[in-house]
Nucleic acid binder design. Structure first.
Length: 592
RNA sequence: GGUUCCGUAGCUCAAUGGAUAGAGCAACUGCCUUCUAAGCAGUAGGUUGUUGGUUCGAUCCCAACCGGAAUCACCA
């Protein structure tokens, strides 16, 4: 419909005013509820070229639409509202209400999009900040796939470096041979425990040195534990068998822990990279850049890129001892991925604290090294999750642990359910439901917020289950399913197509029009890489349905065609809710 | 200090440059002998940080200022 309007508008502009207009369906908006109409066109953009008053342009265009598209129209202050015959909407409903992939676009031979997310360190378990990263990455992947792209999800695990050595060292010194089995702890939590342990002892050492009169910054560098950790990193880089074995073992514990967390979150990757295998890769590119004259070497042998002309600073690419830094590896991994998948776009889901890093990365690859994939890098930058008392700090124990939080949400869902006196579930269904609701609430809470904004999480007030939440939307879905079950119980076969003489009421029409918007929302969410658009749409839709549900009894309706039509609308709404929530990685129940 | 991002109801969040800035939570008022009340209807709550500018039209774009955050490492 939108396309037809746009095409007709293009023709009208050419014929009436000789204006050459590029098709852009986004200027055709849904009419606001307080006005009469289905679609609204703002005519102001054309009045200058048309050399007529806004109302005259609207009148002429309205006449044209009326003749060519058989719609009615009204004009309010330069806004042209078009109203289509009811039958148009009924046809839309008939043609789509059983289409289980409604809102999803076909893949075809489309572009490859590579998306990196999660990218954890292996020295501690995942926390709420990681959850936002994982959920965003997963949901954007789903949305882009729904937009017809071939999406490849990759994870880059930071499995090496000084921070892992800290955990290893602390375990060696204070661990007494503890294992996940012996302690009944998840592996990542056990390793995280020793990361904290290291910090505790390290701080004590620094304090002692300071008490002995040493300067703080010197003490921080001279503390025996820090020196030992650095020594361990050197041994690691020299392939010391003992250190490598310990490293392998502790990483293995962490991976088993992560696997559980990922599974519960419902996310998976197509490919996992490990920094221990890729961290040397960038050196070749740095060498290439040196030869091209894109970079330069200082007297101390360190290598730099000069980005002052681009408004940034000079950036280190290789240390004076020849070892690689973060930027070096990212240069390497970008090349590696590009060679492997030739993506049209490479998305990095990384927090906004690294905005500068990605500005530099893009410039170094595109402007300096002149690689064609430089401009294809897209940093999907998201805001921090803040607590009422500030940022999460693992060393200060103010982190909200991912596993704990998920567990609490599930228990909360269970409590809430029994509070409401809902106990009638088949064997095994109840625990599935609690998980669906608890995790759904958590995911929705995070995804409904615009990714680039910082958001606040208050652990004292647990996440709501009423209002603009996943449980509300899930409840609406369950309600509809209950309606459809009742229809089946009453032997009502509403799957027929004979609705030709029926007029839709406003509540029904509003709902159908909102359902019509879904594919457009998916498209925009893909372009903007924002699950928040999907989340807010799903809420609006559920809200709209509940209004309809409350105001419009279905089974009391004596006109059978009208009753059946309402069942169509209900079924379609359930389908769209499910499709929308699936894009957020949230399941919807048949009953709750 | 330089750069980037954010400031919308008491709180948490919406609003591709379009009509009277919307939801939820919290507060208050109604609606369950039932198509599931995790719901619906209603009341109250706003100078969209401030001041200018661009525009037919600005929460949105531009400039300055005020607040807050991030970043500017031979960390990642």
């Amino acid at each position: 419909m939108r396309n037809e309007i746009a095409l007709t508008l293009q023709k009208a502009l050419r014929e009436l005013y000789n204006i050459d207009w590029q098709i852009d369906t986004s200027i055709i908006q849904r009419t606001k509820k307080e006005f009469e109409g289905d679609f609204t066109l703002v005519v102001f953009p054309f009045v200058k070229q048309a050399r007529q008053s806004p109302d005259m342009v609207a009148q002429s265009l309205g006449d044209y639409f009326q003749q060519n598209l058989h719609c009615r129209f009204n004009i309010v202050k330069g806004f042209l509202n078009l109203t289509f015959p009811c039958q148009v909407w009924i046809n839309f409903l008939k043609n789509n209400y059983t289409n289980t992939s409604f809102g999803y676009f076909a893949t075809g031979n489309s572009d490859v999009t590579l998306i990196e997310f999660s990218s954890p360190n292996t020295n501690k378990p995942l926390h709420l900040g990681h959850i936002r990263n994982n959920l965003l990455g997963d949901s954007v992947s789903r949305i882009l796939a729904a937009c017809g792209k071939k999406v490849i999800k990759v994870n880059l695990v930071n499995d090496r470096g000084i921070h892992i050595c800290k955990s290893m060292l602390a375990w060696q010194k204070f661990g007494n041979g503890e294992t996940p089995e012996s302690t009944q702890m998840k592996g990542d939590h056990l390793v995280g425990k020793y990361y904290v342990e290291f910090d505790k002892h390290y701080k004590a050492e620094v304090a002692q040195l300071e008490a002995g009169g040493m300067d703080k910054t010197v003490a921080e560098k001279q503390a025996p534990l820090m020196l030992e950790a650095q020594e361990m990193l050197r041994k690691w880089e020299n392939n010391d068998p003992e250190i490598r074995q310990l490293w392998n073992q502790m990483n293995e514990w962490v991976y088993q822990g992560f696997a559980q967390t990922y599974q519960q979150l419902g996310i998976a990757f197509d490919k996992v990279y490990y920094e221990s295998q890729t961290y040397l890769l960038g050196k070749q590119l740095v060498e290439e850049g040196l030869q091209k004259g894109a970079f330069y070497r200082r007297d101390d042998q360190s290598v730099w890129a000069d980005l002052r002309e681009e408004g940034l600073d000079e950036k280190l690419l290789l240390r004076s001892d020849g070892t690689s830094v973060y930027m070096t590896q990212d240069l390497g991994t970008a090349q590696l991925r590009y060679d492997e998948f030739h993506p049209k776009e490479m998305i990095y889901v990384v927090g906004n604290e690294q905005n500068y890093h990605f500005d530099v990365l893009k410039l170094v690859i595109g402007k300096k090294l002149k690689k064609e994939y430089g401009p294809r890098i897209h940093h999907l930058s998201y805001g921090m999750v803040e607590l009422p008392f500030g940022k999460m700090k693992s060393r200060e124990g103010t982190v909200v642990d991912a596993d704990d939080l998920m567990e609490e949400m599930i228990i909360e869902a269970q409590n809430k359910t029994s509070e409401l006196g809902k106990t009638d579930f088949e064997d095994g269904k109840a625990s599935q439901l609690f998980e669906m609701i608890g995790l759904g609430a958590l995911k929705y809470f995070i995804l409904k917020v615009d990714p680039k904004k910082n958001m606040l999480f208050d652990p004292e007030e647990s996440i709501d289950f009423n209002g603009n939440t996943a449980p509300f939307i899930q409840y609406t879905h369950a309600r509809i399913k209950s309606l459809l079950r009742k229809a089946a119980d009453h032997q009502i076969n509403y799957n027929h197509q004979s609705f030709n003489e029926i007029d839709l009421q406003k509540a029904e029409l509003d709902l159908v029009k909102m359902l019509y918007e879904f594919p457009q929302i998916v498209k925009t969410a893909g372009e903007m890489k924002s699950p928040a658009l999907i989340a807010n749409y799903a809420f609006d839709l559920a809200k709209e349905f509940n209004r309809f549900y409350q105001e419009t009894p279905i089974f009391k309706e004596t006109n059978e065609q009208l009753r059946d039509l309402r069942l169509h609308i209900s079924q379609f709404t359930a389908l769209v809710i499910k499709n929308a929530m699936t894009l957020l990685g949230i399941h919807v129940p048949e009953k709750m």
